[in-house]
């Protein structure tokens, strides 16, 4: 199918984008277009006005900012994967991005676009929640910072206001002894996951001091499972108990590829798969 008609505005600075967005309720941001264009082509969405922010300079910076790794909204997935600062400070992000779509899509798709879109099956929103990242947005009243957990409200629903644009994400640098481990199940390398898990772990295999489990492609947003993490720490891996706990903690939502029952099973098994990757 083909997209419906819309007006197209290419902007070269952030203030212009904010201005148009604030004036027009229907205006939609176009960054890499790798989620928006499929939706337009399939007529799942037909906005009347697109604001192309991809040519704003300076929004693709990647740097260490205090105790955080800052990734500018317009850095593409490929930019992030090939960046030395990311490699040195958060190599897990590169491993995770290898599972995000395919090379030609990663050449265009942006970090900020993935965070702002909030696809429940996407890896980066779950990583942001798992690492307690801050999402920096800019609007008519200036900048504000939103904690990732408060950013995701529901299915494709975020705390961004109509006049706001994501400008970057701040990931706290990992501390001594802290590890991010992840895995997912998908039908084809690069496809959206049927279920995935990112674990933020403090300690070693036989002595886990703190554990945070964040699932994706399970419910309507990144799903934090604190009770289940506690249960794992107290009792170790017990499939039935963990499955019970997950089903009470997460509202599993089936999709085309997998029923909610199947997602619950995959999520339970992922706990074992992910934690067995830990070294002593």
């Amino acid at each position: 199918m083909k997209a419906a008609d819309f007006s197209y505005h290419e902007v070269v600075n952030l203030q212009d984008a904010i201005k148009i967005k604030a004036q027009d309720d229907e205006a939609v941001i176009l960054a890499g277009g790798q989620s928006l264009l499929p939706a337009l082509n399939m007529r799942l969405s037909s906005p009347t006005c697109l604001i192309d922010i991809s040519k704003i300079s300076g929004l693709n910076e990647i740097k260490i900012d205090g105790q955080t790794l800052f990734i500018g909204a317009l850095a593409t997935h490929s930019d992030v994967m090939n960046n030395k600062t990311v490699k040195d400070n958060m190599p897990c992000m590169i491993d995770i991005l290898k599972m995000v779509a395919h090379p030609a899509i990663r050449n265009k798709g942006t970090h900020g676009g993935s965070i702002a879109y909030g696809d429940p099956a996407a890896e980066l929103p779950a990583l942001a929640v798992a690492t307690n990242a801050e999402i920096i947005v800019s609007g008519q009243n200036g900048e504000r910072s939103i904690n990732a957990k408060e950013f995701y409200l529901g299915l494709f629903e975020t705390a961004i206001n109509q006049d706001e644009i994501v400008v970057g994400i701040k990931y706290p640098l990992l501390k001594q002894g802290q590890k991010i481990v992840f895995d997912e199940v998908c039908r084809r390398h690069g496809d959206y996951a049927m279920a995935g898990l990112i674990a933020n772990i403090m300690g070693s295999k036989n002595d886990i001091k703190d554990l945070k489990l964040v699932f994706f492609a399970t419910g309507d947003k990144p799903d934090v499972a604190d009770k289940t993490a506690r249960l794992y720490l107290d009792n170790g891996y017990d499939y039935d108990k963990l499955k019970n706990s997950l089903s009470s903690e997460i509202d599993f939502a089936g999709d085309l590829n997998s029923s909610s029952e199947m997602k619950l099973h995959l999520a339970t098994v992922l706990i074992k798969k992910v934690l067995s990757k830990l070294e002593n």
Partner: peptide, 29 residues
Amino acid sequence: CEQGACGACTIEMDGKAVRSCLVLASQAN
């Protein structure tokens, strides 16, 4: 497919592979 899944439309833009079904003609400026 016109939704990024099949790869048949992959071309080179400024030295990089992209899906030409997921880029607006206007963005080729």
